Simulated scan of single mutants.
Amino acid sequence: MQLQEFIDHIQQAFIQTSWLERLAVLFGIVQVILSSRNQISNYFFGILSIVLTISVLFDARLYAEIILNVYYLVMSIYGLWYWKFKNDNKTLPVSSCNKREWQIVAAIIIGGYALLYLFLSHFTDSDVPMLDAIVSSTAWAGMWLLAKRKIENWILLNSSNIIAVPLLFYKELYLFATLTIVLFIVAIFGYYRWKKIIQTQRIPSYA
């Protein structure tokens, strides 16, 4: 596909989308940028994006995607509470996963993949159940890590993104593929920004 043809597809896709979809995408981008900057306000924009997305998916009768977004909504509300109140009303520090948390991540990915693959294979007409399941289950694990303010969330989310991009192109969803590429780049910067935050937290302060 030539560059000009790709740009034309993006322009056409944008024209055909509703304002609800555009706002959902816009709030989603703002959410990722704010989370990369370690700002708790990222959850407010994330929740707005998810609610709008659910509304669009309901009109399109994409019920499996609605279930996925309901999970995102629950994790966003949990993340907002965890960041704000779990650490004795102090800002929850950025940290790395321990062994137990990696075990939970593995359980989310493997368990989520198995459930989604079975659901997509037996109860939907999906022609890409394997890729669809791994994209979603990896994103689930990444969202859980984001809620726990673990730096590895960016690795998991980008693992999901890197599979999602060719999948979206295959489905000719060029607007969402472009958005995912943008989110992939933002996540890279988010990882290195959080890495600097961890290093700053380790520097002792002197009175």
Rank of each mutant, 00 (worst) to 15 (best):
A114V: 14
T178C: 15
D127G: 02
K148S: 05
Y82G: 01
K171R: 10
S159R: 03
G79D: 00
L80A: 03
K171E: 10
V128Y: 08
V105P: 00
L116H: 05
L118E: 09
K84F: 06
V135K: 00
W140S: 12
L80H: 02
Y117F: 15
W154S: 11
A139W: 07
G79H: 00
N153S: 15
F123W: 14
N153Y: 13
S137V: 08
P129H: 10
L175N: 04
Y174N: 01
I104E: 02
L80R: 00
L173V: 09
K171S: 12
P129F: 10
K84N: 10
S126N: 12
W144C: 05
L116G: 02
L179E: 12
A133I: 04
I163K: 01
A141C: 12
G142W: 08
T124Y: 13
K171F: 08
C97E: 02
P93H: 11
I77Y: 00
E101L: 06
I155R: 04
A107Y: 08
S95D: 08
G142S: 13
S159I: 07
L167C: 03
S96G: 04
Y78F: 12
Y117C: 14
M143C: 11
N89K: 09
S121F: 08
D88A: 12
D88H: 11
W144A: 09
T124D: 10
K90L: 15
